[in-house]
Amino acid sequence: MQMPAAPSQPAVYKWQLHSVPQLPQMYTLEKTAVFVPHSTPGLVAERVSGVLRERSIEAAYDDDMAKVTCNTTDGVNFRVKLYSGRDKYSHGIIVEVQRRDGVSIGFHQHVQAILDAAEGKKTTPPSHSMNALPMVYDDEEEDDDIPHATSSTSSLVMISKILSFRQQEDQVLGMQTLSSLVDPVKMGKQTSKAVSNEIMRETSEVGAKVLQYILSRPSHDDETATNLRIMGLGVLAHSLQSTGSVPEFVRSELRSRLLEDLREAEQRPRAALMSAKCLEHFVKGDHDTMELNEAFEASLKVGQSRHKELMQASERCILQIR
């Protein structure tokens, strides 16, 4: 079947500002702020949007407030604010970064890159390992014949209890633990595969909870529920990569929900990225690759404009189809 020609690449999004509010009197700036002398709001704003795209940070731009609300792929929520200086700083623009919620090993690198970019300095590309802890090595990694089910099951029993807690903040801890267990970069291939095999079983309580998060539709305002869903998608992506197959008992339901994420990439690029990583494993043997291709093309446009990692994930999926 001949696929339609790829559409022309959309222009990279550039945040355009003509004015910014003056820094309020008696306002105490965060330490994570820089002054950019002899610059304009438009130039600094364009630099900020460029580095956010390059580092695949979800960004919602508020022109009136000269503010960007940002979310990293690993769930750190922060703001970037632009001000015009006053008094002896009246000849330039102030850029401030404020962390609002979440913790990440690599967040400092994001902040430094944003401030450097605002000043017009050259920034280093994000490292794929910037959020990774040192990999855990143990004897089981040395021998493929050693059974891993016992240790994996014991960990999942604990995670299952945590995910049953009523408070979503407690559930986040359980999902953070599970996310590490299925990540081969953090735990090694053998451990991640063993845990992935367990949670992909139809009878797995943890797997059922992850599926519940993925199929949910949290509001834009509910950041905790949104982060739980993003983590669930990340767990699924790693598990599919480790096991190499999509369980048939959830394939149809998952496929529909993941495609929704791609079609809504403009509003939820983080979810679209994780869903693209999951759908990469759906392409082989899919009953309607044309539908998949259309969704990947939609997310590709958003990625090309605003989110580099989403662009790359969409391109990989499209190449599989073609």
Rank of each mutant, 00 (worst) to 15 (best):
V210L: 05
V235S: 04
F249P: 02
G207K: 01
E253S: 13
S204C: 08
S245V: 13
P247W: 04
E198A: 15
T243G: 07
T191F: 00
D222I: 00
R268T: 13
R263A: 09
E253F: 06
T191M: 08
T243D: 09
S256W: 03
S239K: 04
M200F: 14
V210Q: 02
Q190S: 12
E223V: 15
D261Q: 14
D221N: 13
V206P: 01
M200Q: 12
A237G: 10
L259H: 03
I199S: 06
H220P: 06
R268D: 15
Q190L: 08
I230N: 08
S252D: 15
L254N: 07
A208I: 07
T226R: 07
S256F: 07
N227F: 12
S216H: 05
V182N: 02
P247L: 10
Y213V: 01
L236V: 10
A194T: 05
Q190T: 12
P247I: 10
V182Y: 02
R229C: 02
F249C: 07
E260M: 11
V195N: 03
R217I: 07
A208F: 08
K189H: 06
T226F: 06
R255W: 06
M187K: 04
A237V: 06
V246W: 04
R268N: 14
K186Y: 02
L228S: 01
L233W: 01
S252W: 09
R268Q: 14
E248H: 13
I199V: 13
